[in-house]
Every structure is written in structure tokens, then in C-alpha cells.
Design a protein around this nucleic acid. Structure first.
Lengths: 123, 123
DNA sequence: ACAATACATGCCGATATGGGAATATGTCAA
DNA sequence: TTGACATATTCCCATATCGGCATGTATTGT
């Protein structure tokens, strides 16, 4: 087996930089394929293929408007991704809290002693 | 050109389900390769290779302890991912607000209604 | 019906991938 | 040093991917 199919889930779909660009662009508002092509400066078939992948995993929705296909983000499909990354949030929150505490201690307590600047291994 | 290299960024690295499993496991605490192999039931070379990728993109750090290599999550590297997904958060927040409003309207008639202890997104 | 517009799809080649098996490297213990 | 243990790397292969190009399909205007 090779790599997992990009059409399998949102994680694979957004691994591709161009697809993230497309999603970023669509985040602003609904757009036609032509607008995406013009703005992102990609070939039309390329855009269509990326949109197809995004559609398969549910990251975008489509609507026909005359000859044009209007694509829009379906943020619900991004949610699992957001939630997965959130499970690691506490790590950098600890970090932030400590930075904040250090800053407060330094400014309020007394300013002069250098705490032997060692890289604390965060724990 | 083919697909972007998996070693290029965190997005590509976490596109692989097994690597996410490894990160989930390491999120709990620092672990040796052997522990990962035993717990996730993968082949040792496979685990080593995945860890190599995670290491290259900075998603994990290593420390040698005798013959064993202790791996730990570097959550900082996950942050860009979290932040990117956050840019779409407003879409589903609209959704949540409406759900919440509906719930409140319904329960306002009641006095002792249970406030639906939901996971607050802490922010 | 016909042409033009707007997309979608198919085929191709170059390349990156993940798993398996074998092997190499590094560390400790006697 | 030798051997056992823990992990990393290499080689091979089947497959999925992306881009480019050509072509197919749907819709509108005349």
C-alpha cells in the first residue's frame, strides 16, 4: 500500500497547499471556478480536480448558476480537524501561562537577578 | 511533480492516520519506540519511519535514555494547524449560537431546566 | 441547430509514499 | 570483546498523487 487516498478524509484533503489556498479563498465568499482560476493563477483543470477532492470529502458544496458552478466552504467538515488539534491545545496553553507568570513575576517582584537562563524542558 | 513531500510541513505529516495515532498516544506522556510499537501494534521499522517524519517536521522531540529513544509531542508545531482551522470557526459558531438560542428559548419556560452541561470551548 | 462559454474528466509521466524484510547502528551488561 | 537489546536505515514494490494536455459535457445566446 502507498499513502492513504486523499479523498478519504479532510486531513488528507487539506494536506495539499493549493487546496488550502482554495479553501482560504472560498472562506471569504462563494465563488465560481473561473474566479478561483483567475485569482489563484492555477490551470482550470487543476482547480476542477482539487475542487472535486474537496467536494468528495465534504469540505465544499456546489450550486449551479447558469453555466457556472458556485463553490462554497462547508466548515462543518473542517471541524474534526479543529477538534483534533484542540486536544493538544493544553500544551501551548501551559507554555503561555508560564510565560505570562514569568513576565508578571519579573515586573512585579524585583528586577535584577538572571535566573541562570536554562532551557526548561517544559514540565 | 507528484504530491508534496510529507516531510515538508505539519499538514502533510498529520495526513497519515498512523502518525495521528502516534501523536495521540504521545500526547498522554513521553514514550519509547518500543512502547509505541507494543501499544499501536505496528511494526518497529514502520514506527521508526513515522517518527522520523514527525521529527523532521518538528512535531515531536527525542531524548536518548540508555538504549531507548524517548519521544514526546512538540505541540508548538501543531499550532499552525490549529490556527488555520480556527479561521473557519466562525462558520460553525454561527451554527452553535443558533442552537444555543433555540435551547434557551425552549428552556426559558422551565425553571429547573438542566443547562445542558456542554463542553465550553474555553475562550 | 450552432457556436461560444464554463467546467469536468481522461490519459500520461514523474515522483513520493508506506509496508515488509533485511540489515546497520548504537548502547548496555558480563 | 562479545552478545543481547533497542532503534534506525536501506531496498524493493504496488499504488496514489499532481500537473499538463486533450477532450467531453452542460448551458446560454442567436
Amino acid at each position: 500500500m502507498a499513502r492513504a487516498a486523499t479523498t478519504s478524509d479532510a486531513f488528507n484533503a487539506v494536506a495539499e497547499p493549493r487546496r488550502r489556498e482554495i479553501l482560504n479563498y472560498l472562506a471569504l465568499q462563494e465563488r465560481s471556478v473561473g474566479e478561483i482560476v483567475a485569482t489563484l493563477e492555477l490551470e482550470q483543470p487543476s482547480v476542477s480536480k482539487h475542487l472535486r477532492v474537496l467536494l468528495d470529502v465534504g469540505l465544499v458544496n456546489v450550486r449551479r448558476e447558469g453555466r457556472r458552478m458556485m463553490y462554497r466552504v462547508n466548515a462543518e467538515a473542517i471541524r474534526p480537524l479543529h477538534e483534533w488539534t484542540s486536544t493538544f491545545e493544553r500544551f501551548w496553553q501551559h507554555q503561555l501561562i508560564r510565560v505570562k507568570e514569568n513576565a508578571e513575576r519579573k515586573s512585579s517582584a524585583w528586577q535584577g537577578a538572571i535566573p541562570a537562563a536554562g532551557k526548561t524542558n517544559s514540565d
